[in-house]
Simulated assay, not measured.
Amino acid sequence: MFPIDKFQNIETPFYYYDTELLRTTLNTINNEIGKYENYCVHYAIKANANPKVLRIISEAGLGADCVSGNEIKAALEAGFPASKIVYAGVAKTDKEILFGIDNDIFCFNCESIEELEVIQQLAASRSKKARIAFRINPDVGAHTHSNITTGLAENKFGIPMADMEKVIMLAKNMPNIEFIGLHFHIGSQILEMEDFEALCNRINELQERLEEQGIVVQNINVGGGLGIDYENPNQKPVPDFKSFFEVYAKNMKVRHGQKIHFEPGRSVVGQIGTLITRTIYVKKGTKKEFCILDAGMTDLIRPALYDAYHYIENISNPNGVSKEYDVVGPICESSDVFAKNYDMAETRRGDFIAIRSAGAYGEIMASQYNCRPLPIGYLSEEFK
């Protein structure tokens, strides 16, 4: 699976992206949404903004979901049309908003009355109209890590449901604002379809409430959130997009001509990426044996930040006798641990170790703490 012979002269750690799997994943998404004429997909760039990966995704026809001005710039440079770019985020700066207006992006997912007023002022300064979808906080929980739950009333994201009609009427009275939809997002790494069903039911309630006041919504953006199987990347390399899209088809009451927008990120790129690292030392402690890697939390922070699990394998000795290790990195922090009491094939100094399912929130969240260089990302096709 991994061309280890071609890794010998490449400095580790680095990210290895399986482009064949990426294209299979994108084809699966397109085949599934092809069943529904009103479905639109915008890839969430925050998951992975590697320019080579972005280019492949844009060539597959997906739009882009951005949360910063630089993500909009990266999307445009990768070939995503401005007409398919949506821009979310709780703290859009004036510079970022103007960049979106100047490039005539499809929509701003607006998160507060204060933001709405600023967008109106900036659009007026350009003598343009800005299209707005309001992000509504649906107060719907998700079975996921507390740090990546976004749809509860206690979270910082979105406008409270109680204020929905108020902000829509404000927008309708602003000359440089065009209200075009509602936006929702309840969290990330969600594997229970019942969570998405609950969101559908809440959206149905809110739409009925608006229609009683004569307000018809053109676009409903349900965000992303579909998770991946971190424990079995080989057995389940492509997430269950069929069930994901079917939940909305079966449970959302879609109005005539209404478009449904999705913003998957992790589910598109999570399984395509592997962090390739090498063993520096195998250290025998008093009670434990440590596999010390040249990759650390600066290269993949998810285990330290979320206590996240990643499947780890010794690809230099795949058939070796299994041993238990604490798999750790070189950073001067006690939290620089990828796994504790982890069973994998016996490891020796210099062995290549693959940390799987690292395509999402891996390279993009890397830092230069301890003055370490940022890891480089390579496509699998570059090794052919």
Rank of each mutant, 00 (worst) to 15 (best):
K384D: 12
L293W: 03
N370L: 14
I364S: 15
M193I: 14
A75Y: 04
C66A: 15
V140P: 01
Q368E: 15
I177D: 01
G214E: 08
R356M: 12
I331H: 11
I292G: 03
E194D: 14
N204V: 11
M365R: 12
Y16V: 02
F134R: 03
L275F: 07
G69K: 05
I331V: 15
G350E: 12
E324F: 11
K129L: 08
F290Y: 15
H42Y: 06
L275M: 09
A91L: 13
K236S: 14
I45Q: 03
F14L: 06
F196C: 05
L98A: 06
T279R: 04
S316Q: 09
F80V: 07
F99K: 05
E324N: 14
L122D: 01
E37W: 09
I85M: 04
K52Y: 07
N155C: 09
D163G: 07
E289P: 05
F262E: 00
F2G: 06
L206R: 10
L170V: 06
R278P: 03
V167I: 13
Y43N: 06
N27E: 14
I4P: 01
I353G: 01
M164A: 09
P3E: 08
H42M: 09
S316T: 14
Y306K: 05
K250C: 06
E32D: 11
I177L: 10
Y281N: 15
D104P: 00
D294P: 04
K52F: 07
P264R: 05
A123D: 01
D326C: 12
P264H: 06
N31F: 07
R266S: 13
A153W: 00
Y361H: 15
V216T: 14
D229F: 08
A366N: 07
D240K: 08
I220Y: 03
T25H: 02
K52S: 10
K287W: 10
D65T: 05
S316W: 06
I180A: 09
L54A: 09
L98W: 02
F262V: 03
N70V: 12
A360K: 02
E231H: 15
G285D: 11
A304Y: 05
G265N: 05
V238Y: 03
M193H: 08
